[in-house]
Nucleic acid binder design. Structure first.
Lengths: 225, 225
DNA sequence: TTTATTATCGAACATCATGTTCATTATCGA
DNA sequence: TCGATAATGAACATGATGTTCGATAATAAA
């Protein structure tokens, strides 16, 4: 059965072990054996659940993704009710990062595995793409294809994040968010071929990115599931 | 002795084998044994020269770096003589990439090793940093620290490159270069806090990036050393 | 050409991580 | 309680890594 306590128990044990080990050494340096030892779980048990290390980590992201999409729906519903969320989610992202930098560093820092970043990259791309396609529909043939613009945005966010983490956060989160806006806002304008007046909306949509990260780190740090 | 024919011969054999294998399968999927088989070199010989796969590849970059720095000096000398290089080096980069996309894909594509990209990233950063520090000296306290701006530039170049390669180059090189300019030019202006008038210089300096890549791929494809 | 040097060979070896198998045991839901 | 099945753990096959060492061949220097 799906709702077998044994199943969820072992999965939780293995995920907890993985998270702890990532914090300690970084994803790359972990072997399956390490996870087994830490989780105190049999070797064959692991392979009964996942094919390899990556699949274990991905199962965790899957779980996060579901949570995130629920949150998204709430947010959309709130918007329909006319209430404007006064928060800056990119800023929240950087704040959360500062607070939980150890884990973030393991996931996004220089010594982390590319697999995680690539997964997140792809996911955020898919998330922002429809938003920007919507945005660009009102304009005709933007100088830069929407797909490229979105990819550029995510890359910039990641590059700021990793730079910041690798240097142990020499600036406050507020400054980082400001940099992100300074760098991307004019670029988005230029890419969409938008007159400056319409910019605020673009920046707004951008906040979707932060939304994911916020939930992301919240879920991570409680380490529960 | 250093100038022993045997040494340079085995090193060349191993490098050639590595390059061929990278083109075929990508860096990740190669084992030391593969290199040995292809190069027809003894196991112990390999470890007499390098500690692992990465070190072999790095030795190749080291070699490229030297060549590049020589070219840089020539270029600087030419500039002192008053002759303005009329070429757009970023454009050249994208053209070379299109021409030798197979190898580029192995090095910079989605399935390549992060190690190479990280190395290049760091190198280009170090290259552009003094240039932009010089640029920003005339201005006081730019909105974005120079270090971040440079990192952003390299990231953007890489993101365009990999996006392009992963999708089998759906646009001509000219279009890609145009996008790069569209995205980065206004961002650089904003980051440096520069009035639009002074921009051309910034774009000019940027060309240094392409300079490396041009030589980079030239050296690669001839496969000689 | 001769000689002393040393890079290469190759085969063996230890080590370690991966992934599979299977009979046994413990735990679960019904 | 009972049938189902998840977890165990030990054994095994596989394959990559990195080391060692005596023999051999190529090399630079004399």
């Amino acid at each position: 059965m799906k709702n077998d306590r044994r199943v969820s128990r072992t999965r939780r044990l293995m995920l907890d072990a993985l998270m702890a080990l990532i914090e300690e050494r970084g994803y790359e340096k972990i072997t399956v054996q390490d996870i087994l030892d830490r989780a105190d779980v049999g070797r064959s048990t692991f392979y009964a659940h996942f094919r390899d290390k990556d699949e274990l980590l991905l199962s965790w992201f899957e779980h996060l993704r579901e949570l995130f999409e629920l949150q998204q729906q709430d947010l959309l519903a709130a918007r329909r009710n006319g209430s404007v969320p006064g928060v800056n989610m990119v800023l929240d992202l950087f704040r959360h990062t500062a607070e939980h930098h150890k884990l973030y560093k393991a996931v996004a820092g220089r010594q982390s595995g590319e697999m995680i970043l690539k997964y997140l990259h792809r996911y955020l791309n898919g998330l922002l793409l429809p938003v920007f396609e919507e945005l660009s529909r009102s304009r005709r043939e933007p100088p830069v294809p929407v797909e490229v613009t979105v990819n550029f945005l995510v890359s910039t966010l990641f590059s700021l994040m990793t730079w910041w983490l690798d240097r142990d956060m020499p600036y406050p989160a507020e400054k980082m968010e400001e940099m992100f806006r300074t760098l991307t806002r004019p670029a988005i304008e230029a890419a969409l071929g938008t007159p400056p007046a319409e910019v605020p909306e673009a920046v707004n949509k951008n906040d979707t990115v932060g939304g994911f990260y916020r939930l992301f780190i919240d879920s991570v740090c409680c380490a529960g599931r």
